[in-house]
Every structure is written in structure tokens, then in C-alpha cells.
Amino acid sequence: MPRYLVGRLAGMAGVLLLVCLFTYAVFFLLSPDPAVQVCGKSCTPERIDQIRMNLGLDRPFWTQFLSFLGGLVSGRTYGEGANAVECAAPCLGYSFQSSQSVTDMIWQRLPVSATVAVGAAVLWLLVGVVSGLIGAVKNGTWVDRVMTGLTLGGLSIPNYVLALVLQFVLVVQLQWLPFPQAVPFGEDPGRWFLNFVMPWIVLAVGYAAAYTRLTRANVIDTLQENFLRTARAKGLAPHLVWRRHALRPALTPVVTVFGMDFAGLLGGALITETVFGLNGVGKMAADSIAKNDQPVIMGVTLLAAFFVVIGNVVVDVVYTVIDPRVRVAA
């Protein structure tokens, strides 16, 4: 097991390095000259050249990439002399538009994104798995058909439409929720919670629908397994057949998908955060794209990739706990 873990972590480091290289190369090749952006409106070609030299943009790709990696590990300084800016480790780049290091910008917004992701995840897991189980038990009945219809709706409705409809119904018409307003948790936890209710629902609906289908299909498959026939032939009561023999194999694939989905969301829920004006990583990414703030876009891309890679490893490790076949092979 420890050897397996070390191997997986080494592999993860390799993948992350490749992701860095690829992302860096994409932005290096495709994005407009950062020096022009730094220079601003009243700019001369000489000034651009000078900035380019100052930031090391005139150096070859590999040299620049290594400086970037160095910044990740031990921080770096952009520019020289009076104009120099510090970027502490792990430095994901520096946004000259915001005069802030990308790491700091992400760090400030990550709690919001994490809150959105965690709340939504709890909601969609509960709703998705429970309704999937109901669908499997009621397989073929009208309950199942209604739920299949609902999941189709949940999968097809776009986030932003649902967000607007919810705001109109819950806030304007029924007035069950207050008008969303940023309130820190420490100030008024109740109000803070209410603010997140709609984002959670909006984000969770699509996932819940997908998880309902996934759970339903897995449970129905598992119920056909021969070992369930064995469990019944042993004389086990139905609830024991379900609890001991059906649920674990049926829900194992859900763990895989959940790990990926949740990790992906930590990199920011772009649409949901933007629609509700939540100052998370997703909204920052959207804003940065609008402003063409290249270091930030790259930083968020790397962050998202980072979470997905970590999520993958976590799922693999969790698998060794829940599935003995993987454990022994590991």
C-alpha cells in the first residue's frame, strides 16, 4: 500500500509537470504580448522592448518556462529596480492589471468556490443517490418514469436559466429567500447560508440528475448479479441483501464520478458564480477572460488541472479501501 501510494504520488507529480508545460506553452503561443498590456495606452515600441527585457519575455521559451517553475517552487521577482514586483511561492504568475499575484487572487476567492462546491456536492449526492435508489426499486413503475422525466429536465435546463427562474420564484414571488447580498460568515451565519442556497441548488440540479441516472443504472445492474441470488439463497432478509450485498458494488462507480466532478468544481463554477455575483474563482476566470488578463486565466487553468489530478489520485486511493480487488492488486 505505501509503495502504491508513493508510485501514485510520483505519477501525479509527473502529470502536474506536463500540465504546467502544456498550459504554459498554449498561453505562450496563443496569447497576445503581455508586454503590450503592461505598457498601457501611451506606449512606444522602445518602452515595450524594455518591458519585455525586464520581464524576461525576450528569452527563449524553455528559459521562461523554467523561471515559471522556479516561481512555483520558491517565488520570483518580476522586473528590476524600482518597478520590481515580488511574487511569493507558489507563484502562479502576476497580474499587472490587478497589481496582484495570481496566487493571492485565487487564494482570496477559493473559499467562496469551495463553499459553493461543497454545499452543492452534499445536495446532489443526497438527492442523486436517494432518488437513484428509489428509481431502481420502483424500476418500470410510474414513479420511475416520472423520475426519469425529471432527470431529463434536470440535465437539459441550463444553469443560468434555472438561476433566473429560481431568483424570480424564491426571492421575488414567494419571498422565501432574501435578496442575495454578500455577508461574511462571521457576521451573520444564517444570512450567509441563505445566500448560498440558490447557487447550491442551481449547481446541484444537473449533477443530481446525472447521479440519479448513474445510481439507478448501477443498482439495477447489481441486482442482476449472481452473488445477490446467493445472498437470497442463504435466506438473508431483503434489507440485509440490499445493505450488505447490493449497495456497495452499486455505489462504487458513483465514488469515481464524484471525485472527478467535485475536483473539477473546486476550480470554480464559472456560470453559477457569475450569475449570482459570487466572488469565486469561476467568476474571476470569467472576468479575466473578458479583460484578457492572461496570467490569471493561466493560473486558474492550472489550478483546475491541479484539482482534477489530485481528485484522480484521491479516488484511486479511496478505491483501494472500498474495492478489495484493487487493494490486492495494488
Binding site: 449472481n226 452473488f227 441470488r229 439463497a233 438473508l236 432478509a237 450485498h245
Partner: peptide, 25 residues
């Protein structure tokens, strides 16, 4: 009937791998 199954009458099946639950010893 459940008290008869597995107690007075026991059964073994064709495919022993799929007839055993892979998740338990």
C-alpha cells in the same frame, strides 16, 4: 421460507466467481 433457505435447503451455483460477492472475504 427464508428460514428454510440456506438452513435446511442450501444451494450452490454454476459460476462460483460471480456467485460470491467480490467485496467481502
Amino acid at each position: 421460507l427464508r428460514r428454510v433457505r440456506g438452513d435446511r435447503v442450501a444451494m450452490i451455483f454454476q459460476d462460483p466467481l460471480s456467485s460470491l460477492n467480490p467485496y467481502y472475504t
